[in-house]
Write a protein that binds this DNA or RNA. Structure first.
Length: 281
DNA sequence: ACTAACCTGTAA
DNA sequence: TTACAGGTTAGT
């Protein structure tokens, strides 16, 4: 479900509420949402949440004692701060068969709910001040990282055969982009998703980096995109779906030239683009 | 470098 | 009943 702007929105919601709070309890309704563990969940109890960081679509909850929880929401994962909800909503969320974990802090409970169960937690006991992000093969963060035209140009030389769509979705190249924002970035840049990355010029790469920056900024400002499932930590929708130009609009008119937007499948993912405004090269 | 698989829910 | 969904990855 969530891409970088949605995960960043959740991070901003939660850091304001949970920084320096003590974790009192860590309970699981299903143990299979723990994808990896150096230690037991109970080892986190009594620890202080020092910070919440994000790299790409991963969230890292950093606790005292060098303990860390990595969270990935995949398609339908949600992190919901229970006190933000009405008492009826709180009750139904706690009883939901898709609520898999509850983190109880001194000021309230944080719930992990995931219909499809692709998402989950990884529990780390770090040594030497290393963050668990370093264990993942992730490129620079698309928002806070060193992403520019020169970097993309160097990367496209390493992966010349990838379709541009697949290239932008690859988290080892750039971390944080998903199906919505890649389509939006390619539309903004005037490049087709089915061109090969090897054909990108340095100028194209500079435009891609620029468009990425601009679109992510607006999307974060709008609190992310709620096309269907996404909700922030307060269980509320984002607003960026009102500003999407091509994603989810296959068969409708291009907002710039009026041509019919095409929808194709690349690497198993749907892509929508304008056959007039976007060029293959 | 592509596909099938992991899951469940919703819409066609 | 079938196709499809803001993601990733093991296997081919």
């Amino acid at each position: 479900m969530p891409e970088l702007p949605e995960v960043e929105t959740i991070r901003l919601n939660l850091i304001a509420i949970l920084k320096n709070q003590k974790l009192k309890g860590f309970s699981l309704n299903r143990s299979d949402i723990i994808k990896y563990a150096d230690i037991q969940p109970s080892a986190f109890e009594g620890c202080i949440l020092l910070d919440i960081k994000r790299h790409g679509k991963f969230l890292a909850f950093l606790f005292s004692g060098n303990l860390e929880i990595l969270v990935h929401l995949r398609m339908t994962g949600k992190l919901i701060w229970l006190p933000a909800l009405s008492s009826e909503e709180q009750e139904s969320l706690l009883e939901s068969r898709h609520t898999h974990a509850v983190l109880s802090f001194e000021n309230g409970k944080l719930v992990f709910n995931d219909v499809r169960r692709f998402g989950g937690f990884e529990l780390y006991q770090n040594s030497g001040g290393e963050s668990a992000f370093s264990r993942k093969k992730l490129g620079p963060d698309a928002w806070t990282g060193a992403l520019d035209g020169r970097y993309l140009f160097a990367q496209k030389k390493r992966h010349p055969g990838l379709y541009l769509k697949t290239f932008l979705l690859n988290q080892e190249i750039v971390a944080g982009l998903g199906n919505i924002y890649t389509d939006e970035i390619m539309f903004e840049t005037g490049l087709r998703p089915d061109m090969r990355a090897g054909r990108l010029s340095l100028k194209d790469c500079e435009r891609l980096a620029e468009a990425t920056r601009a679109i992510l900024e607006k999307a974060i400002e709008a609190g992310g995109t709620s096309f269907r499932d996404y909700r922030n930590a307060g269980n509320r929708r984002g607003q960026f779906q009102n500003f999407l130009r091509v994603y989810g609009r296959g068969g409708l008119a291009c907002p710039v030239c009026g041509a019919v937007l095409e929808k194709i499948t690349i690497g198993g993912r749907s892509s929508v683009f304008c056959p007039v405004c976007q060029k293959k090269k």
